[in-house]
């Protein structure tokens, strides 16, 4: 048993546990952040995806000791992020979730991808989803949701500048400075 301190969704959390415990279990069992799901524990399904310093990673493969000085964001902590919110409404409208078990992981991965448009070629955001499995939707509705968001972000940038969501929580925005990043980043077509 060790006492570890973690930065989760902008808050400092102290947990006492075996340092080898997968982050996924600390989040789910210790902190009751059950939006992070467990589908396989072998790195294939992506249901356990969280952001580590802004990058999507699989929390089932991460011993909690390895993330002590990093900023962790879970799906719960992304609420309020403008890109997350835009994606959430598009997913809702397109029917991007059926059983919903894969959905939080997909939301986390895609939110990260939308924040880093230079990484994925235009129209290829779905390449970000190679590590996420969905058994229900056949991915079409998710693709539609991505297309809706990227089209929306583009037109917003052309007209009114970057979207800012008034409900953005301070932790959600501050942890990654993404409000800032959003101002600079242009989504390529």
């Amino acid at each position: 048993m060790n006492n570890l301190s973690l930065s989760i969704n902008g808050q400092l959390q102290r947990v006492a546990c075996d340092p080898l415990t997968p982050l996924a279990d600390v989040l789910r069992d210790g902190l009751r952040l059950t939006g992070t799901k467990i589908g396989c524990r072998t790195g294939e399904c992506g249901a356990c995806t969280v952001l580590l310093d802004g990058e999507p990673v699989l929390s089932c493969l991460l011993p909690v000791a390895a993330v002590q000085d990093a900023k962790i964001q879970t799906v719960e902590g992304l609420a309020g992020d403008p890109r997350f919110e835009a994606l959430a409404s598009a997913m809702d409208a397109c029917g991007g979730a059926q059983c919903g078990y894969c959905t939080p992981g997909i939301m986390v991965t895609l939110t990260a991808a939308l924040r880093q448009p230079d990484r994925f070629a235009p129209g290829e955001y779905e390449a970000a989803l190679k590590n996420n499995l969905c058994r229900c939707t056949g991915y079409r509705a998710i693709r539609e949701a991505i297309a809706q968001v990227t089209a929306g972000l583009q037109s917003q940038e052309m007209t009114a500048g970057p979207a800012r969501n008034s409900t953005a929580t301070s932790e959600g925005a501050e942890a990654l400075g993404q409000a800032d990043a959003l101002g600079k980043v242009a989504i390529p077509r």
Binding site: P19, L20, P22, R41, L61, P63
Partner: peptide, 26 residues
């Protein structure tokens, strides 16, 4: 030695007993 852990921690709960008593270097 732990790099990213993507090989080491696959299916950790079932693998854990094999590493009993080991130290770890991240």
């Amino acid at each position: 030695v732990v790099g990213g852990g993507t090989d080491l921690f696959v299916h950790w709960p079932r693998r854990k007993p094999a590493f009993d008593g080991r130290h770890w270097l991240d």
